[in-house]
Amino acid sequence: MILNIIYITAAVLVTLSILITLYRIFKGPSMPDRVIALDVIGIQLISLIALFCIILNTNAFIEVMLLLAILAFIGTVAFAKYIEKGVVIEHDRDR
């Protein structure tokens, strides 16, 4: 009983931290800060899904967590490459 209250409280706190991180995305001082905030939101969503797995006592969302982690990583790499070079996919690699 007391553990469920702790898990729900943790889920609420993670949700609040996601909202605070959304503020950093919209009002970030620079583009790299916004990219890092997007990566942090991905990590927070993974932890929120893990908390729901614990609260619901199921393993059904483990694949969702892995997929979200992969997509967050690929998104961070793509944004970092865009910031560095201005393009994500280079067409003239051999020249």
Rank of each mutant, 00 (worst) to 15 (best):
Met1Trp: 05
Ile5Leu: 15
Val14Lys: 03
Thr15Met: 08
Leu16Tyr: 04
Ser17Val: 02
Leu19Arg: 10
Ile20Gln: 09
Ile20Arg: 10
Leu22Arg: 08
Tyr23Pro: 01
Arg24Val: 14
Arg24Glu: 13
Arg24Met: 11
Lys27Glu: 11
Lys27Phe: 12
Pro29Phe: 03
Met31Lys: 14
Met31Pro: 02
Arg34Asp: 03
Val35Ser: 10
Ile36Arg: 06
Ala37Arg: 02
Leu38Cys: 15
Leu38Trp: 05
Val40Cys: 11
Gly42Arg: 04
Leu45Val: 15
Leu45Ala: 15
Leu45Met: 15
Leu48Thr: 09
Ile49Asn: 03
Ile49Asp: 12
Leu51Pro: 02
Leu51His: 00
Asn59Ser: 10
Asn59Trp: 00
Ala60Asn: 14
Ala60Pro: 04
Phe61Glu: 00
Phe61Met: 13
Val64His: 08
Ala69Gln: 06
Ala69Arg: 07
Ile70Trp: 00
Leu71Arg: 05
Phe73Gly: 07
Ala78Gly: 02
Ala80Met: 15
Ala80Cys: 11
Ala80Pro: 01
Ala80Tyr: 06
Tyr82Gln: 10
Glu84Pro: 03
Glu84Ala: 12
Lys85Asn: 14
Gly86Asp: 13
Val87Ser: 10
Ile89Asn: 02
Glu90Leu: 13
Asp92Met: 06
Asp92Ser: 15
Arg93Met: 07
Asp94Ser: 10
